[in-house]
């Protein structure tokens, strides 16, 4: 498990004001938004056992667990495994099939766009549920925005079919091996991926009693 605590975004100042004389004194503020730090074993609870079981299963498939599991994150008592993208399908297969893990249900996939994290702009997060053990776990994969390809998990969890189409629709993630990767919520001919951070909210100005109010993404805001 490599140490990964890089800055996702650096913010300066406050009130979103740039280039104007700063009278508030907040202009010098500097804040680094970082990734959730890697957890160090022992993780506590059932997490150690689960990670161990996954490592064992990966070894049986001739894979080095250190190369597959990039990072173990524990945040608010939730376990998230950061997985190298080329091994996603193998990990999912193990998580579903190993008796000690048996995460039978995948609850979909959600994308997050971090434009500042070079080479790992798009994160996708799969929450899993084990009804047998009554446990939850998340699997996360980071992809470069220039080549957002990852294996589709529909062969392991057929229920992720629509969820992957949704993530393709909104984030442009290409799930290789998906039976029919087309847009699902937006019209088929829609340009762009609406929920990426570089896609504007595309609201219109609103007139109210003579005053023009811009859409929320063009208003001044506080960080």
């Amino acid at each position: 498990m490599t140490e990964l605590t890089r800055g996702l975004e650096v913010r300066e100042g406050s009130f979103g004001v740039h280039g104007s004389p700063d009278t508030s004194g907040y202009g010098g503020l500097r804040k680094v938004v970082s990734e959730i730090p890697a957890a160090e074993p022992p993780f506590g609870s059932w997490f150690d056992k689960a990670v161990l079981a996954l490592s064992k299963s990966l070894k049986a498939k001739d894979l080095m667990p250190e190369q597959v599991i990039e990072k173990v994150m524990i945040y608010r008592a939730e376990l998230t495994l950061m997985i190298a993208r080329e091994h996603l399908l193998t990990v999912m297969q193990s998580l579903r099939d190993e008796d000690e893990l048996s995460f039978e249900v995948c609850l979909g996939v959600a994308g997050v766009h971090w434009p500042e994290e070079q080479g790992r702009e798009i994160h996708i997060n799969y929450p899993l549920l084990s009804m047998l053990h009554n446990r939850r776990l998340s699997v996360e994969v980071a992809l470069p925005v220039k080549d957002p390809r990852v294996a589709s998990v529909t062969s392991v969890y057929p229920g992720n079919n629509w969820h992957e189409r949704e993530t393709y629709d909104f984030f442009g993630v290409i799930f290789v091996g998906h039976p029919g990767l087309t847009r699902i919520l937006m019209p088929d001919d829609w340009p762009g991926f609406p929920q990426r951070k570089d896609y504007p909210l595309s609201g219109v100005d609103v007139e109210y009693k003579g005053a023009i109010i811009p859409p929320p993404d063009e208003r001044r805001w506080y960080t």
């Binding site: 959730i36 929450p127 939850r136 998340s138």
Partner: peptide, 13 residues
């Protein structure tokens, strides 16, 4: 302005 929420990600159901 609202309140700040610390960096993190959670799944609730």
């Amino acid at each position: 302005e609202g309140f700040q929420v610390p960096r993190g990600q959670v799944y609730t159901a």
